[in-house]
Design a protein around this nucleic acid. Structure first.
Lengths: 224, 224
DNA sequence: TCAATAGTGTCTCTTAGACAATATTGA
DNA sequence: TCAATATTGTCTAAGAGACACTATTGA
């Protein structure tokens, strides 16, 4: 009992940060620079610092600030994982967070201590991640899909201004299936009239009919 | 930094244990015997013991075993609460669990260290609970209602054998609104044919037509 | 027979999916 | 005009809610 790791568990915040790259859903991974699992890829995470963090949400925010040059606009707790053997350093708890990043902010600066970052397709996982992070990633994916399936709008993955076609495409990418354009827009009007604001006078132009631009309403929450 | 409470947070598992008493939803509270908040009512909870618990789920189970003479048949993680000020003893994390107890097992033995237990209507909360437990209770309630609203069946609150009318009554009590008998049973046949098993030859008798008894199918999960 | 609850049937209205039709641009 | 995408309309089938109806018991 002299080892404080047996009296107090290690507490981590791990984050599954999603965005869209090349029309496919991607999640951010970091290559671990230090043991345990040095060289393996993992979800970005870090240990709770009681002298620094206001709460575990703050731990997750601090971890992401250390890795990316941006503040993520959405962060939500998913679940915890705990036990004596999931981390070689001792009895540990990981609180898993789901985060979203706008697709136009995917190219971000790399922080200091990190060996490497990469965005990968969570469906095409080639190698298992460090610790139990493959399982955690699956749970975060399930949560994200369930929310979009329940008609929650992942507006935080879009640029500030977007078209309804872009929004539909994002939902299709997350869900992994095509949606009917008419049904999708009908539901937007029914359920999200107060969450979407028309941006007047600015259209997306191309070799086709210009599309209306929209933005998320003030105080929009990714709920569902 | 010499105080280990600033290096390592206190980690608790707190449980909102629900059942039905007198045709109303109730939650189990304990009166705190020791400081902080001695004498105040709180959700049953306890500190993680890394040398004893296999994981946080195990902590919650151990806490309930210490208070009740039964093993609860359902236990699910809801969320966490964390920060430096929510517990006077230091930076702390509570992992909140939602648990269900069959209504015929509400009268259970009281454990050793507990000053008192009581079942209360979570809607008719007279006084705020200790710590942030009023907020935690609200979140557990929200989770329970959301699941039943999504047609998850809270079979773990019923006796082993039950009638469909009893099942409907439980759902109505949780949701706080009446359900249509025909719609309810139609949905049971559509969605829960594999979750419900007819118990043949045993009817509930009274001054009315006898009702068919059912039980949860083997391996039933309260999902949704 | 009647009260009381169990269990089923039916009608209507709403919603979801499929798919067609129209609109507007640049080349 | 044509290709390409935006936006809207319509038909149909499935599902939900309301409510009535039948069934079976003990008193």
């Amino acid at each position: 009992m002299s080892n404080p790791r047996q009296l107090y568990p290690l507490v981590f915040a791990d984050v599954a940060l999603f965005s869209v790259v090349d029309d496919r859903l991607h999640v951010l991974l970091v290559r671990r620079a230090e043991a345990p699992h040095a060289g393996q890829w993992a979800l970005p995470g870090g240990i709770l610092k009681p002298d620094v963090d206001k709460d575990l949400h703050g731990t997750a925010q601090r971890v992401l600030r250390g890795k990316l040059a941006v503040d993520v606009p959405y962060l939500e707790e998913v679940c915890t994982a705990s036990g004596p053997h999931r981390d070689e350093r001792g009895w540990s708890i990981s609180v898993l967070y789901l985060a979203l990043l706008p697709m136009d902010q995917v190219h971000v600066a790399v922080g200091n201590k990190i060996d490497a970052l990469k965005w990968v397709d969570p469906f095409a996982a080639d190698a298992p991640l460090a610790f139990d992070h493959s399982e955690l990633l699956r749970k975060a994916m399930d949560r994200l899909r369930a929310k979009v399936e329940r008609h929650a709008l992942p507006l935080h993955m879009l640029p500030q201004k977007f078209t309804l076609s872009q929004l539909q495409r994002i939902c299709e990418i997350v869900l992994g299936r095509d949606l009917d354009k008419s049904v999708f827009r009908r539901r937007l009007k029914e359920l999200h009239a107060q969450n979407l604001v028309e941006v007047n006078g600015e259209m997306v132009r191309g070799v086709q009919r210009p599309a209306q631009l929209w933005r998320a309403a003030d105080g929009f929450k990714f709920i569902g």
